[in-house]
Design a binder for these strands. Structure first.
Ligand code: MN
Ligand code: MN
Ligand code: ZN
Ligand code: ZN
Lengths: 140, 140
DNA sequence: AATAATATGCAACTTAGTTGCATTTAATTA
DNA sequence: TAATTAAATGCAACTAAGTTGCATATTATT
């Protein structure tokens, strides 16, 4: 599967009804190929191997992909956003694992979260976010 | 209770066995007086009303308080750390609430988290972090 | 009061992310 | 296919949280 990812990206982006641009395709293709969440930096490096993409544009592309539910972003303790493509069974609420050694982030899809916690009076519940911290297999 | 907080802070810091400095006392006193988690900025502003404290020193004080388990820090989606004093029943694992409108953070002490999730093979579990997102009473 | 280890202030730095604006490109229409 | 136009892009400048190095001040000890 050489660049099935690019074709898959094209299908997904076309499906949003908005503009199908080269940079959106390239970026999404990279995220489709990855098993874990990538930082803006990591994506930039992978992109620039073939063809340069301005970092500001990449920020805007990632924001766009995020707003259109093609990816989701995850906040880490290192103040850096990580981006992961939304797989079919993936768009629902799920937990994340963060490796405290290499800061790698993976999505825990098998991990259901039961919601509706009791909040102080007058508070409005929206969603619950669960992060598991530990050490990944490569770092043990 | 005028500055019971300063006295309480003195007791807590003396108890660590390390140096009892004016800045540690002032900073901890401010955190003791608050019901929710404060950013470095918010603490700085409160401190500077009475007497200036260098921002770098404050970073170091907060790091010290954190390492000595007198406060804990919470990562928000705005890439800013928030600090909250560790109350007696508070040091255990608990959940946090983040207001998506004003970014205020409170600790949900009544909220127990059951741990030991199933992770991929070779992964090491350390702890689980639960964040509830919604809108606080003042922002509804 | 003298000592020594630690805390502090200040300047300079790092880095993720944002903003404004002129130019280019994707999609629509003629 | 060429003209049109709204949205996407590149670039420079900016913002803001947090860090580092080093000289000076303060705490705790003798
Ligand atoms: Mn995920
Ligand atoms: Mn808390
Ligand atoms: Zn790891
Ligand atoms: Zn609020």
């Amino acid at each position: 599967m050489p660049n099935n990812f690019y074709e898959k990206a094209k299908e997904l982006i076309r499906h949003t009804g908005y503009r199908v641009t080269h940079n959106r395709l390239r970026t999404l293709a990279i995220l489709l190929a990855e098993q874990y969440a990538l930082t803006h930096r990591e994506i930039e490096e992978r992109l620039n191997v073939k063809e340069h993409l301005d970092r500001v544009t990449l920020y805007r592309v990632l924001e766009w992909l995020s707003k259109n539910n093609l990816v989701h972003k995850i906040a880490g303790d290192d103040r850096v956003w990580r981006f992961r493509v939304n797989m079919e069974l993936h768009s629902h609420q799920h937990a994340h694992f963060i490796c405290t050694r290499c800061t790698k982030v993976i999505c825990l899809n098998n991990f259901r979260i039961k919601s509706n916690p009791s909040l102080p009076l007058g508070y409005l519940f929206h969603e619950v976010e669960l992060t598991v911290k530990g050490v990944c297999a490569e770092c043990v």
